[in-house]
Design a protein around this nucleic acid. Structure first.
Lengths: 303, 303
DNA sequence: GGTTTTTACGGACAGCGTAATTATT
DNA sequence: AATAATTACGCTGTCCGTAAAAACC
């Protein structure tokens, strides 16, 4: 959440709630509301509302001076704490499967590194079963995998679902397979489906969603089995078939027009993203901060 | 909500979460939780947990220095804003009926004055109809009355129910009327009931609750009609009868043993407390702060 | 066993976004 | 009409309290 003094200073700087809201990536009403709350808290009007924005009252100008000093102090504090963290650098190894580790996580790790530049975060991407194996062997500190857990782990591991991601149907942007506006489950029995190898989380999610709709797995028209998301994307883009993948994996291609994300009308596939952490480990403040980031939809900022 | 740096400093000062929690009027787990959040935010351990409390780590000691400067700055800011408020003193006149104005509101007004010492708040207590009359005449800025609104006001008044208060049965602490542990609706048809004058909010609430239980008003054994809560309390304490009053009005007497609050098993009476404000008025920051205080159960602190 | 902190869980409120409304030129 | 701010409303996450558990003498 953005600091109220930050909001106040931004509005004072721009002389406009709308512009301040844009700078802070907030909605304009949110800024208006926080500002009003601040005025109520002090019992003083801080801005005069004019037809083309706002301007500071004397009370507002007083607050600006204090706010700037306080914010400056907080920035120095942040810097000093960062240097203290740097004194005892921590290494954390994250194991993840390809859809998560290759697409969603890099942004999260980047953002986290921005905040904690001294943290050494290593991202190991591998097959689902390998990731879990490495976790059990203590070679990675935590794991993020797709799909449900097949084997129950001993209970010194804490397992939590951090996200339910929708699988989307991707088709070539042009050609015979790009004909329809929207697709149904029946279409999936006819279209050549390119699918991940058995054992992968995405494969599990597809099969689970298909059976949940009361269908038989043999009705899927599997044209090709490929290992890894990238191979599938390339193959679909070349017009070899359609596929079901996590939305994150194809955002870039969809925007560029290399692939088309087609709506599914009467069936939906979801993939659960699961975080696995050893109950004993991850006790330090930095480790906890990382967990918090991964668990909080707002902070992890998958991109 | 208490500032996180305040919490941190209190814990640092006492070397104990429990003692800090007591000082801040918070639960001990709440302090623990906020402290952990602070540690996660900075990615550093701030306290070493020992068996008899906590002690600062080097990072914690750094934070103490910054926190004290920031808190000091905030205190100066508060002081300066208070002096700015004092430059343009505001007078607000509150009209209220006796149960609200005489018992619940004084604490609220006191707390508000502590926070805004320059606010001149005047509390006018009167009969329900008089209060509303004075509001319409503009002689009071806002009104707090008990019970529902009989006459619909024109819609440039904003009416909101701020609290549903339970009416409790009070009996003399000793004597023939103090016999039973708990009372029923049937008992109320036999006990001598001392009741407020018609038109008062409490009277309305009693009659409404009685009829809502499917009873006839004539079955109430009204022994005496008195004007004002105090007269009723005196009369009940003297053993002349029992009465139904707002809990706030008799907290002191119940604690002292002058009156007994007796449970009602099969009937309940509630009195709605209504806040009436002119939609146009109360636009200033101070006025809004007062309204916020009156509307927020946490802040108004009826006592 | 006693003291202190942590974990777990449910409820209340704050802060935000979307959408609709108001005010001012 | 157009621009800027406010109000209304539903949702989500934070913060807090109670209760139970765990750590550390």
């Amino acid at each position: 959440m953005t600091n109220e003094l930050d909001i106040f200073c931004a509005v004072a700087k721009h002389g406009s709630m709308s512009r301040a809201a844009a700078e802070l990536h907030l909605s304009q009403p949110a800024v208006s509301q926080r500002l009003r709350a601040l005025e109520e808290q002090y019992g003083l009007q801080l801005f005069r509302r004019t037809n083309r924005g706002v301007e500071l009252t004397p009370a507002g100008e007083t607050l600006v001076r204090y706010a700037q000093r306080i914010l400056q102090l907080e920035r120095s504090l942040q810097a000093e704490m960062a240097s203290l963290r740097a004194a005892e650098p921590k290494q954390v190894v994250i194991g993840a499967t390809s859809a998560i580790g290759g697409y969603a996580l890099p942004c999260t790790v980047y953002l986290f590194q921005q905040k904690y530049p001294d943290a050494r975060i290593q991202l190991q991407i591998g097959k689902r079963c390998d990731v879990i194996q490495r976790l059990e062997d203590g070679l990675v500190d935590l794991a993020l995998v797709e799909g449900p857990l097949v084997t129950a782990l001993p209970d010194d591991w804490q397992v939590s679902v951090i996200s339910e991601e929708e699988l989307v149907l991707i088709t070539p942007p042009t050609g015979p397979l790009a004909g329809k506006e929207a697709y149904t489950a029946d279409d999936l029995t006819r279209l050549p489906l390119i699918i991940r190898e058995p054992g992968s989380g995405t494969r599990m999610a597809v099969e689970e969603g298909w059976q949940a709709a009361g269908r038989d797995l043999r009705d899927l028209n599997i044209a090709l089995e490929l290992t890894g998301v990238d191979a599938i994307k390339t193959s679909v883009a070349s017009g070899h078939g359609v596929a079901l993948v996590s939305r994150w994996c194809v955002r870039a291609e969809a925007r560029m027009g290399h692939l088309r994300i087609a709506p599914l009308t009467d069936i939906a596939f979801t993939s659960r993203w699961t975080l696995i952490v050893p109950k004993q480990g991850m006790k330090g403040a930095m480790e906890r901060a990382l967990l918090r980031t991964l668990r909080s939809p707002a902070e992890r900022g998958f991109c």
